[in-house]
């Protein structure tokens, strides 16, 4: 029986939750550091995050080697955003997780570095929804929240500038996808160089 189709064990559950939490903690810390500058925060931070997190995602999938790992990670991520007040990101990340699971559904997919690279690049691209959804679908709510929560007008103006101008949106999407792709290559290299040699996979 293919490893991917086997039943989840306790070790799989614990590893998935532990590494998902590590991914989310790194994402939040990098975003927090990048908030010091509007340009870095709004244009580059997701790319940096996706580059750094790619090896962790590759390790998580390679180690567990079962279906629904990405789905669980996306659900935990969505719940964290829900706790921070962005309820609409929970269904969004669940949908993203479903798309990723569809790509990885075929038995053996979780051992295929090419498919994993496609999935992480897609996750990197879709992660931009965190910034784009508010401006596309929840602008009035977001603007009221931004004003009442002390955001300066210059910050809101920068946000509108970067996420409404087609040129900037295109640049952000390309940059984050490229960063996710490069991160995937680094993840593949680290898996080969360290984790396979250490015998943990």
């Amino acid at each position: 029986m293919n490893q991917q189709l086997k039943k989840w064990t306790i070790r799989d559950v614990i590893t998935t939750v532990l590494l998902s939490m590590l991914l989310i903690a790194i994402q939040l810390i990098v975003n927090l550091i990048c908030m010091a500058n509007d340009f870095v925060s709004m244009v580059l931070s997701i790319g940096f995050t996706m580059f750094i997190c790619a090896p962790i995602y590759f390790l998580m999938i390679s180690r567990i080697n079962k279906r629904f790992v990405t789905m669980i990670y996306m659900m935990i991520l969505g719940i964290v955003f829900l706790l921070m007040g962005n309820w609409y990101l929970l269904p969004y990340f669940i949908l993203t997780g479903l798309i990723c699971e569809w790509i990885l559904w075929k038995p053996g997919s979780t051992e295929d570095p090419k498919r994993l690279t496609i999935v992480w690049t897609l996750v990197s691209l879709l992660y931009n929804g965190v910034n784009l959804l508010p401006i596309w679908f929840f602008w009035d709510t977001y603007y009221a929240f931004a004003k009442s929560s002390g955001m300066q007008q210059s910050y809101i103006d920068a946000y509108v500038r970067y996420y409404t101008a087609p040129g900037w949106i295109l640049f952000i999407l390309i940059f984050t996808s490229a960063a996710g792709l490069l991160g995937s290559f680094m993840g593949r290299r680290l898996i080969r160089k360290h984790f396979k040699k250490a015998g943990v996979l």
Partner: peptide, 15 residues
Amino acid sequence: VPLLLRCLQIADQLS
């Protein structure tokens, strides 16, 4: 790398 290796060890110990 050491952080991830340690995470895997912790996950095994917890399991």
